[in-house]
């Protein structure tokens, strides 16, 4: 049986992908640098991707497919840690893929690397420049991971590599920053700004990862989800109360007191609308969960009001 090794298995998305593969009767193994609990259906290993322990995981599992979904996206983690895991760790994973004859590698990147910028055109395709670093150098690890994986596509043709840059991923099992923001009952909003935004449901993204595994193409692809809508309209759908405040106050507050990455504020100010036409064309994928259901699913786990 072909075994698929999934990194970031402690996360909600990786577990959804694993469940879908298991349903189709495929072999799955998971690995994470964090502790993972509650999984009995397939073997799970704990190993940091930048340490020698990951080498032993490859020896034990002998995967034919690797889904690298374990990028540290939380920018409140120290840059050194993110660099070790996202850049050094990913480099090691890619090298191990070549050494162990892995046939397919899917790398989960993020649309954040395009950056939200007043000069962004619509829509942004995979060929467009990555502006995020100009206003937020701390995102360098994500940009470097993406660049490294993109170079890998052509440097090592024996491994069919697909890099995915999804928009905001939300869903009942996702605990990223955007989901946490949406789950709040009341949030401050930047008065006078209401940019177009996109969201993709965790199940749609999981299906996209599987489509990438089973398809034939290699390359870098955006995943945009169903419909584009203004940020405030998204908040109306999630029934989140909005408190408009001057943007300068919110920006200062976030930079000084909050753990929310300051660059995320720009995504509530300027648009970063991407197109996934290439992925739909090359892999026959389409989003099945509409935008309303996508957003509502994110707040299913909202804590009850006091």
């Amino acid at each position: 049986m072909t075994t698929t090794l999934i990194t970031g298995i402690a996360g909600g998305l990786a577990q959804r992908v694993a469940a879908m593969l298991l349903e189709d009767g495929e072999g799955v193994a998971g690995v994470d640098y964090r502790e993972t609990t509650g999984i009995d259906a397939y073997p799970v290993y704990r190993a940091s991707y930048d340490k020698t322990a990951i080498e032993d995981v490859f020896r034990k599992v002998s995967p034919k497919r690797v889904l690298h979904l374990g990028r540290v996206g939380n920018l409140s983690e120290p840059i050194e840690k993110r660099f070790e895991i996202n850049v050094i760790g990913s480099q090691k994973l890619m090298r191990l893929c070549v050494q162990h004859g892995v046939e397919v590698l899917v790398v989960l990147s993020t649309f954040h690397i395009y950056g939200a910028h007043p000069r962004n055109h619509v829509p942004i395709s995979e060929d467009d420049p990555l502006r995020a670093g100009t206003s937020f150098p701390e995102i360098a690890d994500a940009i470097q991971l993406d660049n490294m994986a993109s170079t890998w596509i052509y440097k090592h043709p024996s491994v069919r590599t697909v890099v995915l840059r999804p928009t905001n991923v939300v869903g009942p099992n996702i605990t990223n920053t955007m989901s946490k923001v949406l789950r709040r009952r009341r949030i401050p909003a930047l008065a006078g700004y209401n940019p177009m935004t996109q969201f993709v449901h965790e199940d749609d993204l999981a299906r996209a990862v599987i489509a990438a595994v089973r398809g034939k193409e290699r390359g870098v692809y955006n995943i945009a989800g169903p419909s584009v809508l203004p940020w405030r309209t998204a908040l109306e759908i999630t029934e989140t109360q909005v408190v408009p405040m001057p943007s300068i106050l919110i920006e200062r507050y976030v930079r000084t007191f909050s753990r929310l990455p300051a660059y995320l504020i720009r995504f509530f100010k300027y648009p970063c609308v991407i197109t996934d036409a290439a992925f739909r064309r090359d892999f026959g994928w389409e989003s099945r969960v509409d935008i309303t259901e996508t957003l509502r699913s994110a707040v299913d786990r909202r804590p009850p009001s006091r």
Partner: peptide, 9 residues
């Protein structure tokens, strides 16, 4: 789209 917006807003 179904919410009445195009990609440019």
């Amino acid at each position: 789209n179904e919410l009445g917006y195009d990609a440019w807003g």
